[in-house]
Design a binder for these strands. Structure first.
Length: 569
RNA sequence: GCGCCAGUAGCUCAGUUGGAUAGAGCAUCUGCCUUCUAAGCAGAGGGCCGGGGGUUCGAAUCCCUCCUGGCGUACCA
């Protein structure tokens, strides 16, 4: 809708330039204005082309305005054209154009905002991805929110999206964990048994050891000797346990992965294929008993090891193989979200992709930055190794799924986040997630009320929209019309937080409208027109919340009224 | 040392990719419930966009440089 308006204006301006300067197809950009006093749309064409046309911006603008004004009486869209200070040409759009959006939304319903920007491109989004060494933490929760929401947004914009979770179940940390588990097990019978220094200290390892003990009680096999069989049993016991927990954490958070990819499945064949490919291309060499990748040829400070002296492939090589596998699965694009400790790794992985001849644009990697949990204005310290850390599960049970997701989605993913636990728990207007949900619930309540009054909400597309003319109503229309744009932009920039910001703004504009104007009144015609307004607002709020993975409640629980102490005194 | 992220109101952050007088929320202050939910609304104050240079009609945004904070810089993952 807005796109059409822009195209319409571009055409007008270009035609005018053609008439006056005999130059055709000069690029003209039209943007929505930031402020109403500059009209609805604006073009900087006069300033952009001042140099080329060898004339001052104001002078060009004056001629263009004059010419455009001549044919304005025939234009149904545009009310007024104006030239302002440095050389902006501002267009004022007829209110009827904006009001049409209500009907458009009411008809499109849950598909309003959906578009085909992605053109069905197959895209794989990898996020959360963890070491199976403990419960998922708050950074994982942040990644889950962002990744999942981005996937929603991408499919809304016409991409064919798959969600993937990468399980690092083949590295050193798995060995360390098994050692920790066995040590805890032994400590049940022999408290003096030494716990490995680099082991995992969390209490959940002790709990796991107790469970293991239940299974093996009486056999004592674990206490006597640790052979391969015992080792593997411990390994698979703990992996299925931890992965089960992680899977549940993520599902309870409302995220469904299409695929849980196990690193183990890359060993040995796919990893071998990856390095053989690199070798054939001449990017590897042996040194000191290890196999190296010539990353310096791609700007790295030093070359990196692919296969260690002991013959075990590095995480780096495994990840190359993993991404090669993604590529071979036929995705047009791949997006990774990684933790803040992966900086150096990301650059190298991209170098390896380049070495393999994969287009740089194929893979985008973003870092989900760290999260500081704040309570009463103080940072809560986190340390995974020391076993003291905030888990995703704890966070969600404390503040709820909706608040957690929204707080993670309010901010750009690349910046560090202070998560205010007190605010997230607060059930008041201070809490932005309630603010938006409340707007939705309020609308639902009015609609319910309208039903009671026996006002027909079914034939709403026949309402008399001529009655819509209050500034708050027009502002609502303009804001609702911007939803498509926001959806598109947040998809192409991979930035879900734009949706969150938009919904906050929309909720505010609605609350303002609500306070100024009654919807259900004696005037049936007006009531119908206003019902149309709130119905379309509800649709956009619901669609936006859906993209964020946050519920759109029909009603909010009434907060108890606080009686002022004054009365009692 | 090098690399990445950041530096915008007292606090936490936006800023539609270079536009016009830089915006929200929290906190502070002032008003508004006999009404479709006050979990709401209206209004006020609060700024050297870290500093300095450059690019141009125009810079919070792009380039250079310096300062400050966080993280990374393994034959760990």
């Amino acid at each position: 809708m807005i796109d059409n308006a822009k195209k319409h204006i571009v055409k007008i301006v270009q035609e005018s330039i053609g008439k006056i300067y005999s130059i055709s197809d000069l690029p003209v950009s039209v943007e929505r204005t930031r402020d109403e006093k500059f009209g609805d749309f604006s073009t900087n064409a006069a300033m952009m082309h001042a140099h080329k046309l060898k004339e001052s911006p104001m002078s060009i603008g004056e001629k263009l305005c004059k010419d455009i004004n001549k044919s304005l009486s025939k234009d149904l869209f545009i009310d007024k054209v104006e030239l302002v200070k440095p050389g902006f040409i501002n267009f004022y759009i007829n209110k009827r154009f904006w009001i049409d959006v209500f009907r458009e939304i009411a008809l499109a319903k849950e598909n309003y905002g959906r578009n085909n920007t992605g053109e069905g491109k197959k895209i794989l989004v990898e996020f959360v991805g963890s070491n199976p060494t403990g419960p998922l933490n708050v950074v994982s929760a942040r990644a889950a929110s962002i990744g999942d929401s981005l996937c929603n947004i991408l499919s809304f914009n016409g991409y064919d999206v798959k969600r993937e979770f990468y399980v690092n179940d083949a590295g050193e940390q798995v060995t360390t964990f098994v050692r920790s588990l066995i040590a805890r097990y032994k400590q049940i019978y022999n408290p003096d048994f030494k716990f490995p220094e680099d082991g995992y200290h969390g209490d959940y390892v002790k709990d796991m050891a107790k469970e293991l003990d239940k299974i093996y009680k009486g056999k004592k096999s674990l206490l006597d000797k640790i052979d391969d069989d015992v080792w593997n049993r411990c390994r698979s016991f703990y992996l299925s346990k931890i992965l089960g927990d992680q899977q549940r954490d993520v599902e309870d958070f409302g995220v469904k992965f299409d695929n849980w990819f196990r690193e183990k499945t890359l060993h040995v064949e796919k990893i071998n294929n990856a390095w053989i490919k690199l070798k054939k291309l001449g990017f590897t060499y042996p040194k000191d008993g290890a196999l190296w990748f010539k990353s310096t040829e791609f700007g790295d400070d030093e070359d990196r090891v692919l296969v260690k002296k002991n013959g075990v492939p590095t995480y780096f090589l495994a990840d190359i193989a993993y991404h090669l596998d993604k590529f071979n699965r036929g995705f047009d694009e791949a997006i990774d979200f990684m933790g803040p400790d992966h900086h150096a790794h990301i650059a190298r992985l991209k170098m390896a992709m380049k070495a393999l001849g994969i287009d740089e644009k194929w893979l985008d990697i973003f870092i989900v930055q760290q999260v500081n949990l704040m309570r009463s204005g103080e940072k809560i310290k986190m340390s995974k190794r020391a076993g003291k850390f905030e888990t995703m599960r704890d966070l969600v049970s404390e503040v709820g799924k909706d608040a957690a997701r929204f707080f993670f989605l309010m901010r750009t993913q690349s910046s560090h986040l202070d998560f205010d636990l007190d605010l997230a728990k607060e059930k008041s207007s201070k809490n932005p997630v309630y603010y938006i949900q409340y707007a939705h619930a309020r609308i639902c309540n009015i609609l319910k009320h309208a039903e009671k009054e026996k006002i027909d909400t079914e034939k709403i597309d026949k309402v008399n929209t001529e009655l819509i003319n209050k500034p708050e109503e027009i502002e609502l229309a303009k804001t609702l019309a911007g939803f498509e744009d926001i959806c598109r932009v947040s998809a192409i920039t991979y930035e879900p937080h734009r949706i969150a910001g938009y919904l906050l703004k929309l909720a505010g504009i609605f609350h303002n409208f609500y306070n100024k104007h009654r919807v259900v009144t004696e005037n049936k015609e007006l009531t119908n027109a206003r019902l149309l307004i709130i119905m379309s607002t509800k649709i956009v709020l619901a669609n936006g919340l859906e993209l964020l993975g946050i519920s759109a409640p029909e009603k909010m629980q009434n907060r108890e009224k606080e009686w002022p102490n004054m009365i009692l005194e």
